[in-house]
Design a protein around this nucleic acid. Structure first.
Lengths: 216, 216
DNA sequence: GTCTATAGAACGATAGAC
DNA sequence: GTCTATCGTTCTATAGAC
């Protein structure tokens, strides 16, 4: 369940809604389907979460806060360890990627594939009512990691850095949102259940992409 | 318009539907909205395209065929030029990325930002009825480019190559689907209207990511 | 807190006139 | 080929009994 503070019915709605929203998107899921698959009454969702928008927003905000909290904590810890110095580039990449590719279950319980897929999709679907949530609970941590990365690439023109960083983050979000796509892309040869391999490969991928310093 | 073979009304429906589907997804757009914004009658869409699924499939299949055709043509041309030899890695990346980031208007007319966004989104939304279209009109060209890339990385374990290739293609699709995301991510510092900079940066990004050969 | 019942709107799709 | 009119369904949301 998402949060213990919810009762049995409320928690069942949340987990079912998260799974369905992650799979079919906000517009692709009806409250009738959520309540039917959750085995609760249709009116329950309105009673507990007012309306569909609020239900979706609540789920997403909760996951975004989990994500950002883990990232900011690890980054602060790494910066403290280095005495406010430079955190290794590969570690910053890990801080960004691990919640999406191999979340530590003792730190991020219940943060499963559906949660990651939901986040990946929400960052592509431009639902207007999510803007305040993203600005408050997502972008700050991404910006902080970006600043930490920037210290490794001081000579890179600002625009070039932003392009690279966008591509890296985009690849990560895409990997979270389109795990199935990878299967069809690779015709099954790539075992995307192997989360350790995913993280290891992404780390190498991102480090190489970020530190590329060809002349032009 | 998409295809000259359609009449005035049919073409207006296609272009309007493409824009709306690209922005809000398949489930997020109603036929009433499409016909209203296109300025045509609601019944027109059923008359010309049978139903909503067929309309969406027709648009997507047309764009996928444009995309794959350009890619396969350029790849065949490059392979012929090298006498069946090895096509430069950066050129293969260009063949993959250019239709999404800076399409040649003389080769891909009408292939605008909405078309690219539609493709990027369709590859994340797992609409079951699209599977045959993707298998026929998208995956073959991606697989061919993958094979051409593979020749540059013969020593790389197959799984590692697929991971890297997936990340590169994912970053590309994400860039096409979430251009707005890049703006919020970078707080406007990154001019994503500069398509030449996008392609140049992506090329460097992808080449560095693919050719990384760190020990582990 | 959970249910039934239903209001009120929007949906995809079609029949039939022109 | 384009229109009006409408059918039947599904949707979100709520009112009110228990």
């Amino acid at each position: 369940m998402l949060i213990d503070a919810y009762g049995e019915t409320g928690a069942k709605v949340l987990t079912t809604a998260e799974t369905l929203f992650a799979e079919y998107g906000y517009a692709g899921v009806s409250l009738r389907r959520i309540t039917a698959e959750a085995g609760v009454n249709l009116a329950a969702v309105n009673y507990h979460y007012s309306d569909k928008q609020s239900l979706y927003t609540e789920i997403l905000a909760y996951r975004l806060r989990q994500l950002s909290s883990v990232r900011l904590d690890r980054l602060a810890e790494a910066e403290a360890r280095t005495g406010g110095g430079t955190v290794p580039l590969a570690e910053i990449v890990d801080i960004l990627a691990q919640p999406f590719l191999q979340p530590d279950e003792s730190i991020l319980p219940t943060f499963g594939p559906a949660s990651r897929r939901l986040l990946g999709r929400a960052l592509i679907e431009p639902l207007g009512f999510l803007a305040p949530v993203l600005a408050a609970d997502f972008q700050p941590a991404v910006a902080r990691c970006g600043q930490a990365l920037r210290r490794h690439l001081p000579a890179l023109p600002p625009a070039d850095f932003l392009w690279r960083y966008s591509f890296v983050v985009g690849a990560l979000h895409h990997a979270a949102a389109a795990l199935h796509d990878m299967k069809t892309l690779t015709t099954g040869l790539c075992a995307n259940e192997d989360s350790a391999a995913a993280l290891r490969n992404f780390r190498r991928f991102a480090v190489a992409a970020l530190t590329s310093d060809e002349s032009r």
